[in-house]
Amino acid sequence: METYLQITSVWGVYLSIAVFVAGMAWRIWEWSTTPRSPIPLGMFPKPRTGTGRFFKMLKDTFIAPQSFRIEPWMWLAAMAFHIAALGAFVGHLRLIHEFPFLPSLLGEAGMNTFAAWSGSIAGVLMLGAILFWIARRTTGPYKTISVPEDYLLLALLFGVVIMGDHMRFVYGSIVHAATYREWFLSLLAFKPAFPVELTSSNVAFSLGTHMLFVDLFLIYFPFSKLVHTVGALASNYVRSE
């Protein structure tokens, strides 16, 4: 189990973060060095001012009102997933530092309850959205247009979320953020070490597997359609050029 953790939760983390950062930088560099189309590709109605255009880009990217109008359920799943993923990401910041104010406001027990609830909701929403996407992608016209990349990404996400949910729902009341923080801060200090609470219980397997999927997900991220996280801003900006 120690070796598994060493691979997925120490070296895997270093590697995947390096690949992710370098990959995204390469991708953005590649985009920015390709010459723009001389033909304006905007559509109407378009905002008259630069500020208007900027806010329209944000609206089209983060709210996508047109997509809601045409397919509300897909929009709902996408929104639920992305908001929950953002929530989960913010929650994971506790790995670096406890939130200011919140613990003193809620008390330590209150903080853990709050995190349990918010983390659980996020975890369930993400799982729900992923299952919806898997169901959608394996039927009808969606199946025909899908390529292995789509299934690979859904499988990786499913792995990340199911193991995260496992840690949340099975070990949530036993192992708390402080324990994971000890491990994560040791990584950041380049002195990797695992607290005994992690290595001595079966949570080690859950963490190791969660991290395995996270590593693979991050490594593949810059080379997949997930670059829409950054690129959608650019393409939605072109919409009103």
């Binding site: 010459p35 247009i145 690129g231 959608a232 650019a234």
Partner: peptide, 12 residues
């Protein structure tokens, strides 16, 4: 650039 982004981004 636009074509590249359109080809890279689509989530199908």
């Amino acid at each position: 650039r636009q074509l590249k982004q359109y080809l890279d981004l689509c989530a199908r």
